[in-house]
């Protein structure tokens, strides 16, 4: 896996991102603090079915819940207007997990938070968003482990 540095990120974001230098600076800051998040370019599918190559931060964030720390899998998509629009955020359950829908999570795993709803650069940023997620998920986890009693290995 290539080492992700600022110049590498700038190349990945090419000219598509209107505020590339701001975006790169934020990503660099966040991945230095949250080392289990990785910047990736991938195809994002919009509601109308169109797709676009967008940058995401994909990986896990450490969430403390009832005295244990869990690595909650998330994917934060950055639009090409970032940071002037909020990221589109999802939990990404593994096959061993199921989504717990609620005030902050829909059945697709999409994350809804006042922090995203009220997003305003430069007061809002990825680092602040992740801190909010960690607090909110620590009270109400977005995923739980699936029961293992019906494992096919026992069939």
């Amino acid at each position: 896996m290539a080492v992700v540095n600022e110049s590498g990120l700038k190349k990945m974001l090419s000219k598509q991102y209107k505020y590339r230098d701001l975006t790169v600076r934020e990503i660099t800051n966040v991945i230095s603090q949250y080392k289990d998040l990785k910047p990736l370019m991938d195809a994002y599918v919009f509601n109308d079915g169109s797709t676009r190559e967008l940058m995401s931060l994909t990986g896990t964030v450490p969430v403390s819940y009832r005295g244990n720390v869990y690595n909650i899998p998330v994917c934060l998509w950055l639009l090409d207007t970032y940071p002037y629009n909020p990221p589109i955020c999802f939990v990404k359950p593994t096959s061993a997990m199921m989504i717990k829908t609620g005030k902050h999570i829909d059945a697709n795993g999409k994350i809804y938070l006042p922090y995203l709803h009220e997003w305003k650069h430069p007061q809002s940023d990825l680092y602040g968003l992740i801190q909010v997620m960690i607090v909110v998920f620590g009270e109400e986890p977005p995923v739980f482990s699936r029961p293992t009693t019906q494992s096919p290995f026992q069939a």
Binding site: M1, K35, D36, L37, K38, G59, T60, P62, Y65, R66, N68, Y70, N71, I72, P73, K92, P93, T94, A96, M97, K100, P141, V143, F144, S145, R146, P147
Partner: peptide, 14 residues
């Protein structure tokens, strides 16, 4: 090489 942390979740919600 850093593959990142293994995803984990709290025990089954009941």
């Amino acid at each position: 090489l850093n593959g990142g942390a293994v995803p984990s979740a709290p025990p089954t919600y009941t």
